[in-house]
Amino acid sequence: MTLIVLYFLTLAVFLGLDFLGLSFLVKPVFERDIGTLLLDRFRILPAFAFYAFFIAVLLYFVSWPALKSESDLGRVFLNAALLGAVGYGTYEFTNLATLKDWTARMVVTDIVWGITLSGVSALVGVWGTRIIAQLT
């Protein structure tokens, strides 16, 4: 039960924050640099696949071990931020290396966002799950 709470709490935080971040931080930068390549509406299946998989990986490498070992929340944030840097950095640096109109501004914006989003989501997920576990 704890794993289910952790997964869905982390997912909810990640989705909520990513909606805000994509809308107000990332999208304006990407529209400025590659606006003609962007879809009017995102594709739900690939988005769902990414979110479901990324949260599962975040839990596997960061959140679940943190709950088991009672790691401090600073370590949870740091480990999740590093995983976010790897995930978002792989995407961004690959695009910068291979795509004509990709810009350094896009790379920095998205990597910083991925670091923040991953760190905060894992931190809140672990913190909230600990609180729920104490209440039950």
Rank of each mutant, 00 (worst) to 15 (best):
Val26Tyr: 06
Val26Ala: 10
Val26Asn: 08
Val26Met: 06
Lys27Glu: 03
Pro28Lys: 10
Val29Ile: 09
Phe30Thr: 03
Glu31Ile: 00
Glu31Asn: 02
Glu31Leu: 06
Arg32Ile: 00
Asp33Val: 03
Ile34Arg: 10
Thr36Phe: 04
Thr36Gly: 13
Leu37Cys: 01
Leu37Tyr: 02
Leu37Trp: 00
Leu39Val: 08
Leu39Trp: 03
Phe42Arg: 05
Arg43Pro: 10
Arg43Thr: 01
Ile44Tyr: 08
Ile44Asn: 12
Ile44Leu: 14
Ile44Glu: 13
Leu45Met: 12
Pro46Ser: 01
Ala47Glu: 05
Ala47Val: 02
Phe48Gly: 06
Ala49Trp: 03
Ala49Tyr: 02
Phe50Gln: 09
Phe50Trp: 05
Phe50Thr: 09
Phe50Pro: 02
Tyr51Lys: 12
Tyr51Ala: 15
Tyr51Gln: 15
Ala52Ser: 10
Ala52Phe: 05
Ile55Ala: 12
Ile55Lys: 02
Ile55Leu: 05
Ala56His: 07
Val57Phe: 00
Val57Glu: 00
Val57Pro: 00
Leu58Glu: 13
Leu59Trp: 02
Trp64Asp: 12
Trp64Lys: 12
Trp64Val: 11
Trp64Tyr: 11
Pro65Glu: 14
Ala66His: 09
Leu67Trp: 02
Lys68Trp: 00
Ser69Ile: 01
Ser69Gly: 02
Glu70Phe: 05
Ser71Arg: 14
Ser71Ala: 12
Ser71Asn: 10
Asp72Arg: 07
Leu73Met: 15
Gly74Leu: 13
Arg75Pro: 06
Arg75Ser: 07
Val76Asp: 01
Phe77Cys: 03
Phe77Leu: 08
Phe77Ser: 04
Leu78Ser: 12
Leu78Ala: 14
Ala80His: 04
Ala81Arg: 02
Ala81Asn: 03
Ala81Gly: 11
Leu83Met: 09
Leu83His: 06
Leu83Gln: 04
Gly84Thr: 09
Gly84His: 13
Gly84Pro: 15
Gly84Ser: 13
Gly84Cys: 13
Val86Lys: 07
Val86Met: 06
Gly87Tyr: 11
Gly87Met: 11
Gly87Ile: 04
Tyr88Met: 09
Tyr88Trp: 10
Gly89Gln: 09
Gly89Val: 01
Gly89His: 06
Thr90Trp: 08
Thr90Gly: 15
Tyr91Arg: 12
Tyr91Leu: 11
Phe93Thr: 08
Phe93Ala: 01
Asn95Ile: 10
Leu96Asp: 00
Leu96Glu: 00
Ala97Lys: 15
Ala97Met: 15
Ala97Val: 13
Ala97Arg: 15
Thr98Cys: 12
Thr98Asp: 05
Leu99Asn: 11
Leu99Tyr: 06
Trp102Ser: 14
Trp102Gly: 15
Thr103His: 10
Arg105Pro: 01
Met106Gln: 13
Met106Gly: 14
Met106Tyr: 01
Met106Ile: 03
Trp113Ala: 08
Trp113Leu: 08
Gly114Met: 01
Gly114Phe: 01
Gly114Gln: 00
Gly114Arg: 02
Thr116Lys: 05
Thr116Gly: 13
Leu117Lys: 01
Leu117Met: 07
Leu117Phe: 03
Leu117Asn: 00
Leu117Asp: 00
Leu117Glu: 00
Ser118Thr: 10
Ser118Glu: 03
Gly119Asp: 09
Gly119Cys: 12
Val120Cys: 06
Val120Asn: 06
Leu123His: 08
Leu123Asp: 02
Leu123Thr: 11
